[in-house]
Design a protein around this nucleic acid. Sequence first.
DNA 1: CATATGATTATG
DNA 2: ATAATCATATGT
Length: 198
Amino acid sequence: MTFHRLPLDFYARPALEVAPDLLGKLLVHVTPEGTASGYITETEAYVGPEDKAAHSYGGRKTDRTRAMFGPPGRAYVYLIYGLHHCFNVVVAAEDQPEAVLVRSLKPKDGLELMFARRRLKQQRPGNNICRLTDGPGKLCQALGITKQQYGCDLTGEQLFITSGISVPAENISAQPRINIDYAKEWAHLPWRFVWQPD
DNA sequence: CATATGATTATG
DNA sequence: ATAATCATATGT
Protein backbone atom coordinates (compact mmCIF):
# COMPACT_ATOMS: atom_id res chain seq x y z
CA MET A 1 0.00 0.00 0.00
CA THR A 2 1.38 3.33 -1.06
CA PHE A 3 0.52 6.51 0.75
CA HIS A 4 -0.38 9.78 -0.95
CA ARG A 5 0.73 12.43 1.49
CA LEU A 6 -0.92 15.83 1.37
CA PRO A 7 1.50 18.34 -0.20
CA LEU A 8 2.84 21.37 1.61
CA ASP A 9 0.51 23.74 -0.26
CA PHE A 10 -2.49 21.95 1.28
CA TYR A 11 -1.35 23.35 4.63
CA ALA A 12 -0.28 26.78 3.37
CA ARG A 13 -3.83 28.15 3.58
CA PRO A 14 -5.98 29.77 6.27
CA ALA A 15 -7.10 27.53 9.16
CA LEU A 16 -10.75 28.09 8.23
CA GLU A 17 -10.10 26.50 4.82
CA VAL A 18 -7.86 23.69 6.00
CA ALA A 19 -10.00 22.60 8.97
CA PRO A 20 -13.02 21.39 6.94
CA ASP A 21 -10.77 20.03 4.17
CA LEU A 22 -9.00 17.81 6.71
CA LEU A 23 -12.19 15.80 7.29
CA GLY A 24 -11.90 12.31 5.77
CA LYS A 25 -8.11 12.57 5.48
CA LEU A 26 -6.06 9.76 7.04
CA LEU A 27 -3.73 10.56 9.94
CA VAL A 28 -0.94 7.98 10.17
CA HIS A 29 1.74 7.45 12.81
CA VAL A 30 4.54 4.97 12.06
CA THR A 31 6.50 3.87 15.15
CA PRO A 32 8.81 0.96 16.06
CA GLU A 33 5.79 -0.64 17.78
CA GLY A 34 3.78 -0.52 14.57
CA THR A 35 1.58 1.72 12.47
CA ALA A 36 -1.71 3.21 13.63
CA SER A 37 -4.06 5.40 11.64
CA GLY A 38 -7.53 6.88 11.52
CA TYR A 39 -9.76 9.05 9.36
CA ILE A 40 -10.19 12.58 10.65
CA THR A 41 -13.81 13.20 11.66
CA GLU A 42 -13.64 16.39 13.72
CA THR A 43 -11.43 19.50 13.65
CA GLU A 44 -11.28 23.00 15.05
CA ALA A 45 -9.75 26.09 13.47
CA TYR A 46 -7.63 28.49 15.54
CA VAL A 47 -7.05 31.54 13.46
CA GLY A 48 -4.13 33.38 14.99
CA PRO A 49 -3.35 36.52 17.02
CA GLU A 50 -6.89 37.91 16.79
CA ASP A 51 -8.53 34.74 18.07
CA LYS A 52 -8.94 34.85 21.85
CA ALA A 53 -9.27 31.08 21.93
CA ALA A 54 -5.93 30.49 20.19
CA HIS A 55 -2.71 29.86 22.06
CA SER A 56 -1.16 32.39 19.71
CA TYR A 57 -3.63 35.09 20.80
CA GLY A 58 -1.96 38.48 20.96
CA GLY A 59 1.09 37.05 19.20
CA ARG A 60 2.22 35.10 22.30
CA LYS A 61 5.38 33.36 21.15
CA THR A 62 6.69 31.02 23.85
CA ASP A 63 8.40 27.65 24.08
CA ARG A 64 5.01 25.96 23.89
CA THR A 65 3.59 27.95 20.98
CA ARG A 66 6.79 28.27 18.93
CA ALA A 67 5.64 25.70 16.36
CA MET A 68 2.54 27.75 15.56
CA PHE A 69 4.80 30.55 14.34
CA GLY A 70 6.87 28.19 12.21
CA PRO A 71 6.24 26.88 8.70
CA PRO A 72 2.93 25.15 7.86
CA GLY A 73 2.58 21.38 7.57
CA ARG A 74 4.19 20.70 10.97
CA ALA A 75 2.79 19.21 14.18
CA TYR A 76 1.93 21.42 17.15
CA VAL A 77 1.60 19.12 20.16
CA TYR A 78 0.98 20.28 23.71
CA LEU A 79 0.01 18.87 27.10
CA ILE A 80 -3.37 19.88 28.50
CA TYR A 81 -4.61 19.58 32.09
CA GLY A 82 -1.25 18.03 32.95
CA LEU A 83 -2.61 14.77 31.58
CA HIS A 84 -3.42 14.64 27.91
CA HIS A 85 -1.69 15.55 24.68
CA CYS A 86 -3.43 17.43 21.89
CA PHE A 87 -2.40 17.26 18.24
CA ASN A 88 -2.65 20.26 15.91
CA VAL A 89 -1.66 20.88 12.33
CA VAL A 90 0.19 24.15 11.80
CA VAL A 91 -1.26 25.96 8.79
CA ALA A 92 -1.11 29.32 6.96
CA ALA A 93 2.42 30.74 6.73
CA GLU A 94 5.50 31.28 8.83
CA ASP A 95 4.91 34.03 11.44
CA GLN A 96 1.19 33.67 10.79
CA PRO A 97 0.32 31.47 13.78
CA GLU A 98 -2.78 29.53 12.75
CA ALA A 99 -3.48 25.90 13.58
CA VAL A 100 -6.11 23.19 13.30
CA LEU A 101 -6.83 20.97 16.30
CA VAL A 102 -7.70 17.37 15.40
CA ARG A 103 -10.43 16.36 17.84
CA SER A 104 -11.56 12.95 16.65
CA LEU A 105 -10.70 10.05 14.35
CA LYS A 106 -12.43 7.00 12.97
CA PRO A 107 -9.87 4.22 13.61
CA LYS A 108 -8.45 2.44 10.56
CA ASP A 109 -5.19 0.48 10.90
CA GLY A 110 -3.36 -0.75 13.99
CA LEU A 111 -6.45 -1.44 16.10
CA GLU A 112 -4.64 -3.87 18.37
CA LEU A 113 -1.84 -1.38 19.02
CA MET A 114 -4.34 1.37 19.72
CA PHE A 115 -6.27 -0.76 22.18
CA ALA A 116 -3.00 -1.55 23.94
CA ARG A 117 -1.93 2.09 24.13
CA ARG A 118 -5.36 3.11 25.37
CA ARG A 119 -5.36 0.21 27.82
CA LEU A 120 -8.88 -0.71 26.86
CA LYS A 121 -10.10 -4.28 26.71
CA GLN A 122 -10.74 -5.23 23.14
CA GLN A 123 -14.35 -6.28 23.02
CA ARG A 124 -16.33 -6.97 19.93
CA PRO A 125 -15.22 -4.69 17.05
CA GLY A 126 -17.75 -1.97 16.41
CA ASN A 127 -18.54 -1.73 20.08
CA ASN A 128 -15.60 -0.37 22.01
CA ILE A 129 -13.80 0.61 18.83
CA CYS A 130 -15.72 3.87 18.51
CA ARG A 131 -14.33 5.04 21.86
CA LEU A 132 -10.74 4.48 20.78
CA THR A 133 -10.01 7.88 19.21
CA ASP A 134 -13.11 10.04 19.78
CA GLY A 135 -11.38 12.91 21.57
CA PRO A 136 -8.20 14.98 21.16
CA GLY A 137 -6.44 13.34 24.12
CA LYS A 138 -7.65 9.87 23.21
CA LEU A 139 -6.38 10.03 19.64
CA CYS A 140 -2.94 11.12 20.76
CA GLN A 141 -2.77 8.27 23.23
CA ALA A 142 -3.99 5.74 20.65
CA LEU A 143 -1.53 6.90 17.95
CA GLY A 144 1.35 7.36 20.39
CA ILE A 145 1.64 11.10 19.75
CA THR A 146 3.58 12.99 22.44
CA LYS A 147 5.81 16.05 22.51
CA GLN A 148 8.43 13.86 20.83
CA GLN A 149 6.43 14.67 17.72
CA TYR A 150 6.51 18.42 18.42
CA GLY A 151 7.31 20.24 15.19
CA CYS A 152 7.28 17.00 13.19
CA ASP A 153 7.11 17.50 9.40
CA LEU A 154 3.76 16.09 8.29
CA THR A 155 5.03 15.53 4.75
CA GLY A 156 7.70 13.22 6.23
CA GLU A 157 7.97 9.52 7.03
CA GLN A 158 6.76 9.07 10.63
CA LEU A 159 3.73 11.18 11.26
CA PHE A 160 1.81 12.26 8.17
CA ILE A 161 -1.60 12.81 6.62
CA THR A 162 -2.80 11.20 3.39
CA SER A 163 -5.66 11.95 1.01
CA GLY A 164 -7.95 9.40 2.69
CA ILE A 165 -11.51 9.45 1.40
CA SER A 166 -13.50 12.35 0.02
CA VAL A 167 -16.33 13.73 2.11
CA PRO A 168 -19.35 15.40 0.49
CA ALA A 169 -19.85 18.95 1.73
CA GLU A 170 -23.41 18.14 2.79
CA ASN A 171 -22.06 15.63 5.32
CA ILE A 172 -20.07 18.32 7.12
CA SER A 173 -21.54 20.45 9.88
CA ALA A 174 -20.05 23.50 11.57
CA GLN A 175 -20.54 24.05 15.29
CA PRO A 176 -19.02 26.15 18.09
CA ARG A 177 -15.62 25.12 19.40
CA ILE A 178 -15.45 23.13 22.63
CA ASN A 179 -14.26 24.27 26.08
CA ILE A 180 -13.16 27.77 25.18
CA ASP A 181 -15.63 29.79 27.26
CA TYR A 182 -12.77 32.04 28.30
CA ALA A 183 -12.65 33.30 24.70
CA LYS A 184 -15.88 35.24 25.23
CA GLU A 185 -17.21 36.53 21.92
CA TRP A 186 -14.97 34.15 19.97
CA ALA A 187 -16.45 31.13 21.72
CA HIS A 188 -19.67 30.87 19.76
CA LEU A 189 -18.21 31.07 16.25
CA PRO A 190 -18.87 27.88 14.24
CA TRP A 191 -15.25 26.94 13.76
CA ARG A 192 -15.55 23.30 14.73
CA PHE A 193 -16.10 21.00 11.77
CA VAL A 194 -17.71 17.59 12.13
CA TRP A 195 -18.08 14.76 9.66
CA GLN A 196 -20.49 12.04 10.68
CA PRO A 197 -19.53 8.91 8.69
CA ASP A 198 -22.37 6.52 7.86
C1' DC B 1 9.91 32.48 43.27
C1' DA B 2 4.49 31.84 43.63
C1' DT B 3 0.24 30.96 41.84
C1' DA B 4 -3.70 29.99 38.66
C1' DT B 5 -5.32 27.55 34.92
C1' DG B 6 -6.51 24.61 31.19
C1' DA B 7 -8.28 23.49 22.86
C1' DT B 8 -9.63 16.62 28.52
C1' DT B 9 -10.96 12.12 30.23
C1' DA B 10 -12.86 8.55 33.16
C1' DT B 11 -15.80 7.53 36.63
C1' DG B 12 -19.77 7.99 39.93
C1' DA C 1 -20.70 16.38 39.05
C1' DT C 2 -15.86 15.98 39.92
C1' DA C 3 -11.02 14.28 40.59
C1' DA C 4 -6.83 13.56 38.31
C1' DT C 5 -2.33 16.16 37.61
C1' DC C 6 1.43 19.40 35.87
C1' DA C 7 3.51 22.32 32.10
C1' DT C 8 2.93 26.77 31.01
C1' DA C 9 1.93 31.48 31.54
C1' DT C 10 2.03 35.37 34.20
C1' DG C 11 2.94 38.33 38.07
C1' DT C 12 6.02 39.95 41.92
